[in-house]
Structures are given as C-alpha cells and as structure tokens.
Simulated scan of single mutants.
Amino acid sequence: MAVSVLDYMPIISALIFAGLLAVSLLQFSAVRKNTRMQSEQQIYARIMDARIRLENSEAFTNMAKQSPLFAERFGIVSSPEEYYTAVAFLDLFEFLFRLKKTKMIDAQLWLRWKELAKTIMTIPKFKRVWDKTKEAHTPEFIAFIDSL
C-alpha cells in the first residue's frame, strides 16, 4: 500500500491553518497594545492641554493666590504665568520620558528632548519650580531630571 502526500493533506492543512491563526493572534495582540498606548497618549495630551488652559485662567490664578502653597510657588517666579510655563514644560518632559521608557519615541528624537530638558534646567526659575514641585513626579523622572 503506497502512501501519498494526499493522505497527509488534512494534517498538513490543519497545521498550516493553526500556524496562521497563531501568527494572526500575535499580530492582533501587538496592534491592540499599540492602539491602547496611542489612546492613552491622546487622552493624556488632552488632559494636559485642559489643565494648562484652566490654570492659565485669571479665575484660577486669583483662587490659587489664596493658597499658601501656591503663594509660595508664585513667589519663586515673577508671575503665575511663569510658574505655569515651568510646570507645563516639566510635565511635557515627563510625558516624553515615559514615551522613551515604553519605546514609543525615536531614540534620536529623544536625545533632542533630553538636551532641551538639560538646557531648560539651567534656567534658575525652572530649577526653583522643579525643586518645589518634584515630589509630584514619578521617582524615575525625578532621578532623570536631577541627573541632568
């Protein structure tokens, strides 16, 4: 009795199908992860934009001046706007730092942002704002900024 390739065709077909299914599932998982990360980044960017707009409003500034904490922080710069600008830069750097950690930013582009962070931290007012607010950031980011 001769065995032909056709006798094994159902098994070969099933193995090919199983392999394609496994590859498809892996690709789907990667696409899902990337989509989730992009959504998270978009949400974070919108939240930061809203925060900056709200903080830079006259109403918020007037209320914040009544807080001893904000009064102290506004006192280390020339105006509340300078404080908000420094905080916005620090938040931007932390967001980019997170993108670097998750490999969602090009390595060469990250080097540019890292150099900008290093340069910005030479501005005395930025350094003073950092020193007053760094406890609000992640420990890894604190270590990064303090190492610049």
Score class of each variant (00 low, 15 high):
residue 122 T to G: 02
residue 78 S to A: 12
residue 36 R to N: 11
residue 28 F to M: 11
residue 5 V to C: 07
residue 134 K to P: 01
residue 57 S to Q: 00
residue 95 F to M: 15
residue 77 V to R: 04
residue 84 Y to K: 05
residue 17 F to M: 12
residue 28 F to H: 07
residue 62 N to K: 15
residue 95 F to Q: 13
residue 28 F to Q: 14
residue 96 L to Q: 08
residue 11 I to M: 12
residue 105 I to C: 00
residue 13 S to C: 13
residue 8 Y to D: 06
residue 67 S to W: 01
residue 64 A to L: 01
residue 38 Q to M: 04
residue 89 F to W: 15
residue 97 F to S: 03
residue 34 N to R: 09
residue 74 F to M: 01
residue 21 L to H: 09
residue 147 S to P: 04
residue 31 V to M: 05
residue 41 Q to M: 10
residue 32 R to V: 05
residue 82 E to F: 05
residue 65 K to Q: 10
residue 77 V to K: 00
residue 43 I to T: 09
residue 35 T to M: 10
residue 96 L to Y: 05
residue 114 K to E: 12
residue 115 E to K: 13
residue 46 R to H: 14
residue 69 L to H: 08
residue 97 F to D: 00
residue 73 R to P: 05
residue 58 E to P: 07
residue 7 D to Y: 09
residue 27 Q to A: 08
residue 57 S to E: 02
residue 136 A to R: 12
residue 145 I to P: 06
residue 130 W to F: 02
residue 10 P to Y: 06
residue 81 E to K: 15
residue 104 M to I: 07
residue 143 A to Y: 02
residue 17 F to I: 15
residue 105 I to Q: 05
residue 106 D to T: 03
residue 94 E to D: 01
residue 13 S to I: 15
residue 45 A to C: 07
residue 146 D to L: 02
residue 69 L to S: 06
residue 103 K to G: 02
residue 53 R to H: 07
residue 7 D to A: 11
residue 42 Q to E: 11
residue 41 Q to R: 10
residue 127 K to Q: 07
residue 80 P to F: 06
residue 98 R to I: 13
residue 146 D to R: 03
residue 110 W to C: 00
residue 129 V to C: 06
residue 104 M to E: 14
residue 142 I to P: 02
residue 92 L to A: 13
residue 43 I to Q: 06
residue 10 P to W: 00
residue 22 A to I: 12
residue 111 L to N: 09
residue 115 E to T: 14
residue 69 L to R: 14
residue 65 K to M: 10
residue 7 D to N: 10
residue 61 T to Q: 08
residue 1 M to D: 12
residue 82 E to T: 06
residue 123 I to G: 04
residue 47 I to C: 06
residue 83 Y to Q: 03
residue 127 K to S: 06
